[in-house]
């Protein structure tokens, strides 16, 4: 029985700006189904006394001191910019922006 509908896949893909063809939507709905079912099976054995896992690494509080280090040179920063102007990235206007 399918738990992930084609509509859901299409919606999530749209949110993630991934352009899927109809046949890809169908295939992914099936694959995501398998994943969701597998996770559900794990949830069945995880009883209330098993704490939720926040992170696979058994570490907390990995902090850095508040000490500045050199920044990237501007020419390196802008090296990947398709367009630039006055040291800034030039990007297309977003619809509905002020």
């Amino acid at each position: 029985m399918s738990t992930i509908s084609r509509d859901e896949v299409a919606r999530v893909a749209a949110l993630a700006r991934i352009d899927l063809r109809p046949d890809e939507v169908t295939r992914l709905a099936g694959e995501l189904d398998v994943i969701v079912e597998s996770v559900a099976r794990v949830s069945e054995v995880a009883t209330a006394d098993v704490p939720a896992t926040s992170h696979p690494l058994p570490l907390t509080n990995v902090f850095r001191d508040d000490v500045p280090e050199p920044a990237l040179p501007v020419q390196d920063v802008l090296a990947g910019a398709p367009q630039q102007e006055n040291g800034r990235f030039a990007v297309p206007q977003i619809l509905g922006e002020e």
């Binding site: 000490v67 500045p68 280090e69 920044a71 990237l72 920063v77 802008l78 040291g87 800034r88 990235f89």
Partner: peptide, 21 residues
Amino acid sequence: LTKMFCAAEVAYGGEPNTQVT
């Protein structure tokens, strides 16, 4: 003095893209 997740220095009024990692 630095950003939340990297050591780029934070200073008001810097030239564009000079406080970037």
